[in-house]
Simulated assay, not measured.
Amino acid sequence: MSGSYKRQRVIILIAFLAIPLLLLGTFSYYPAAKLLYLSFTDWDGISSTVEFLGLDNYREIFSNPDLFGVFLHQIPYVLGGILQNIIAITFAVILNSRIKGRNLFRVLLFVPYIMNGVAVAFMFQYVFDTNNGSLNALLGNLGLYNLQQSWLGETSLVNFSLASVSMWRYVGYTMIIYLGALQSIPGDMYEAATIDGANRFQSFWHLTLPSLSNVIQLNMFLTLSGALAVFDLPFVLTKGGPAGASETFLLKTTETAFTFNNYGLASAMSIVLLGLTIVILLVQNLVLRRRGRD
């Protein structure tokens, strides 16, 4: 009887695991393996013949500034992401205190995140419009005519403008993560710090920030990996313009695949993007471990 029960239990476990593993292999592992294979080939996405190129696609990526060089366009997104985390921690600390209307402010800050990305892009298209945009109109009403710009038409400003939209959209989401972490810190720790004579800044610096270290690590990884994979804002607002100044690596990847039908090179670019994301995670973990030992 026990042997029959064990056999039935094994059959049930296999049956429950078979379908998820099959779906995982079909829609995750197989496409990933196929992508890796195609990154070493020359394929137009239509022909049945696939020419093996070895490492030529990767050499093309790292030697061609029009491909790998577009990562420079994403530096403003990285800077905006760092500022986004600073603002999010500030709002989280403020809204974690007992102030009137804190729930309303939490909702207002979180609403941009749940908005559709394309809708956000179209909304800011009117904000940044050179002639009729609300931003230039506001600057004009304040008498700051010298600050009026073509926010999406200047090569030196376009990426900062797009990065500011991304920061506005995700700061509420980042704040909610920090807020959850803050609420998990025991209040007794702050009471003990107050008894020891610590002021608010000292409590924040020596108690709050160390308690948030793991969450900061998570949010910084999400921020940096998101900065590498920016697509929707430049695609909708600028199409990579002006003169390719706002092209991102992911936008360049989709253009290589679907416009120029070079699926082999596009696959290699996807692998490079994945590799850079893994490198960021490893470097971040290494730096934090060293700080922890010190």
Rank of each mutant, 00 (worst) to 15 (best):
L35R: 09
L35N: 15
L36C: 12
L36A: 14
L38A: 07
L38M: 15
L38N: 12
L38Y: 15
S39E: 07
S39G: 14
S39K: 04
F40W: 09
F40H: 09
F40R: 08
T41F: 01
W43V: 02
W43H: 08
D44N: 13
D44A: 06
D44V: 04
I46S: 13
I46D: 00
I46V: 15
I46P: 01
S47V: 09
S47K: 07
S47W: 03
S47E: 06
S48W: 04
S48Y: 03
S48A: 09
T49R: 13
T49L: 15
V50Q: 11
V50K: 14
V50H: 04
E51M: 03
E51V: 12
F52C: 01
L53T: 12
G54M: 01
L55R: 01
L55W: 15
L55F: 15
D56G: 04
N57C: 09
Y58H: 01
Y58V: 07
Y58T: 08
Y58N: 06
Y58A: 07
R59C: 05
R59E: 12
R59L: 15
E60K: 13
I61H: 05
F62W: 14
F62Y: 14
F62V: 13
S63E: 13
S63W: 06
P65E: 01
D66T: 02
D66V: 05
D66N: 12
D66R: 11
L67R: 10
L67W: 14
F68T: 03
V70D: 02
F71Q: 03
H73R: 10
H73W: 10
H73D: 01
Q74F: 03
Q74R: 05
Q74E: 11
I75W: 11
I75L: 15
I75E: 04
I75K: 09
P76H: 02
P76T: 01
